[in-house]
Simulated scan of single mutants.
Amino acid sequence: MNIVETRGLCKQYGQAMRVKQLNLSVPEGAVYGFLGPNGAGKSTTLKMVLGLAKPTAGEITVFGKHVNPHNRIAILKQVGSLIESPSYYGHLTGEENLRIVQTLRGAPEKDIQEVLSIVRLDGQKGKQVAHYSLGMKQRLGLAAALLGFPKLLILDEPTNGLDPAGIQEMRELICSLPGQFGMTVLVSSHLLSEIDQMADHVGIIREGELVFQDTLAALHARSRHHLALRTTDNGEAARLLGESRIPCTLEEGYLILPLLTDADAAKLSRFLAAHRVDLLRMEERQKSLEDIFLELTGKAASL
């Protein structure tokens, strides 16, 4: 079962289409990484799922129910979220801030101490939030999202502004949630390295369009080793390879082939030479995840 699905989801602001025909599928129990450059439409999409922005077109399904104005509140009672930056009352303590959210959400009072412990703020619960560090404020925002232990947790760039230790701590917390509490986590980021270390499913968005959606393993599979050949006649070489049922594609002056054994590579070299096609260069290559991200998004990856 998919916890979140969108079909043909669009959002237009004036003449600008920020989200275009988006079809997301977030499996139950997954940490789904929603990845893309800044400005790609990630936050806009998450706001539409949460009912904070009205879609221009398309439909949203959460927990198998089509979200509409009549059932939105009931559905959102089972959803926790942290969008952009956490909201808080600086003159109140961390515990007092959570008590307000707990009352509004109708969550059990005992949840306050439990979520403070989960995000490791139980030792700072009596401190005014105005005196919290940025990392502590992010963890307080996560604690507020965890109140009531929702089935779905939506986090928008939760590691923004954190130092390396804070990023590691936030990542470990997110990774533990499905196994510990049975939650599904939908987390957005522009950092490929972050998603690579916490997600098991990935959706990549570019200028409002979904350009990749699959498991993280499938994304890694795109970085398999391959051979790159340059010959005196790439067109003729491609024809000869096709006749020999060796798959190849032409990219930037090179023929790209699956990885061959040394014996098969030597045999291929002799085969081309016998047909008067000289081999100028043979390279073993592997695309990095960063290269794949660049290809999919058309923008410099943040690493």
Rank of each mutant, 00 (worst) to 15 (best):
G135R: 12
K137I: 14
K137P: 00
Q138W: 02
Q138V: 11
Q138A: 13
Q138D: 01
R139S: 04
R139C: 05
R139G: 03
L140Y: 02
L140A: 14
L140I: 12
G141L: 09
G141K: 06
L142H: 02
L142P: 01
A143H: 04
A143Y: 01
A144L: 07
A145K: 00
A145N: 02
A145E: 06
L146T: 04
L147V: 07
L147C: 06
L147I: 08
G148Y: 03
G148D: 10
F149G: 01
F149M: 05
P150A: 09
K151R: 15
K151M: 12
L152R: 05
L153R: 04
L153V: 15
L153W: 07
I154H: 01
L155N: 10
L155Y: 02
L155C: 06
L155T: 10
D156V: 09
D156F: 01
D156P: 13
P158N: 12
T159Q: 11
T159Y: 07
T159E: 05
T159R: 05
N160K: 05
N160C: 13
G161N: 07
G161T: 10
L162S: 01
L162D: 02
L162P: 00
L162F: 10
D163N: 02
D163T: 11
D163E: 03
P164S: 01
P164C: 08
P164R: 02
A165I: 10
A165N: 15
A165K: 15
A165T: 12
G166W: 13
G166I: 14
G166Q: 10
G166N: 08
I167K: 01
I167C: 09
I167E: 00
I167A: 01
Q168T: 13
M170P: 07
M170S: 03
M170F: 15
R171S: 14
R171K: 13
R171Q: 15
R171I: 15
L173P: 14
I174K: 09
C175M: 13
C175K: 14
S176F: 08
L177E: 12
L177H: 13
P178I: 03
G179E: 13
G179T: 08
G179S: 12
F181E: 09
F181V: 11
F181L: 14
F181S: 04
M183W: 00
M183S: 11
M183V: 08
M183Y: 00
T184Y: 00
T184P: 11
V185I: 09
V185N: 08
V185C: 12
V185M: 05
V185Q: 03
L186T: 10
L186H: 06
V187E: 05
V187W: 10
S188G: 12
